[in-house]
């Protein structure tokens, strides 16, 4: 393939990759905002975030397809489930282990992810579930580029969710208290902020984001027990490349990764997953604390 041909083919695949990548990427960003919220408040994060997404997706399958409930009811139910799971994961896997070992919480949340995957296989089975989109499966065509209505909905809904999150964090007293905990837990505690409660809240927010992401993406990529691991990991790649303390960076990089993935996939489908992780390793090799993370000198 000569250069001219390569460029031509690139522009052939680009519009479709832009559209599909934008949808997938905004889901990465949504998941990764969850990492941002817990990491800034507690310097821990949920390695089972992808599995929370998976539970959200499969629950939406049960409620929409099996129980035939209305969409809004299903969404609210998933959010409530995520609130409970967020509280549970903080109680079981984070709180008992934060003081004990610097790495204990990583292991315990990995344990949670294993349990959830196995549970999903037992409860929902191994096969992939199709969750129909409420907007139907007829693609719209804009200038020869097909886009599913669900993809448009994903982009819109995740952007709105993220906007709401940022507004909540920056504007509400609650959000400010959360930020105060992030900045200096001891000082926040002295000011009468209930630090423990804030940590729970951070985990609840993070879980809700994963659940919403699961409900959104299920109609596009089939729901099944193993769907979460890769999504959670790619979202983490977005978080560290974009800067785990920088929600806007996360959004930009998440979308960028989604698009890049579709471009790569249109040349070699099996290389699609490897490319993000290679990128992840290379970037961490270059900047061990992530791209935009401030290099904090350890005080000694």
């Amino acid at each position: 393939m000569d250069v001219g041909e390569l460029v031509a083919s690139f522009f052939r695949v680009l519009p479709q990759a832009l559209v599909s990548g934008l949808a997938l990427g905004s889901v990465y960003a949504l998941i990764a905002q969850g990492y941002y919220v817990t990491f800034t408040t507690t310097e821990t994060l949920n390695f089972a975030q992808g599995e929370f997404l998976m539970v959200g997706a499969l629950t939406s399958f049960s409620l929409l397809v099996l129980a035939g409930l209305p969409y809004l009811v299903a969404v609210v139910a998933v959010i409530l489930l995520m609130v409970l799971m967020g509280i549970a994961v903080e109680r079981v896997a984070i709180r008992p282990l934060r003081q004990l070992l610097s790495v204990g919480w990583i292991l315990s949340t990995v344990g949670v992810s294993v349990i959830l995957r196995q549970f999903a296989e037992i409860y929902w089975g191994r096969e992939q579930k199709r969750v129909p989109s409420i907007f139907g499966d007829t693609p719209l065509y804009i200038a020869n580029t097909g886009i599913f209505p669900q993809e448009l909905f994903i982009i819109l809904a995740s952007l709105l969710t993220m906007a709401a999150l940022l507004f909540f964090l920056k504007r509400s007293t609650f959000g400010k208290a959360l930020q105060a905990v992030a900045f200096n837990p001891a000082a926040a505690g002295l000011m009468g902020i209930n630090v423990r409660q804030m940590v729970v809240v951070a985990y609840v927010i993070s879980s809700i984001l994963a659940g919403i992401a699961g409900v959104l993406i299920a109609p596009v990529i089939f729901a099944h027990a193993e769907m979460g691991a890769l999504l959670g990991l790619k979202a983490f790649a977005a978080a560290i490349i974009g800067g785990i303390e920088n929600p806007v960076g996360i959004l930009v990089v998440g979308i960028g990764l989604g698009i890049a993935e579709f471009i790569v996939a249109s040349y070699n489908a099996s290389f699609r997953d490897a490319v993000t992780f290679l990128l992840l390793i290379l970037i961490l090799a270059w900047r061990p604390q992530g791209l935009f993370q401030r290099v904090t000198a350890e005080k000694v």
């Binding site: 390695f47 990583i106 990995v110 983490f236 992840l280 390793i281 961490l284 061990p288 604390q289």
Partner: peptide, 15 residues
């Protein structure tokens, strides 16, 4: 890289 970063890199490696 340390802690969660290293954990993620090693997950990426096994994948």
């Amino acid at each position: 890289a340390k802690g969660p970063y290293l954990a993620m890199v090693t997950i990426a490696f096994s994948i």
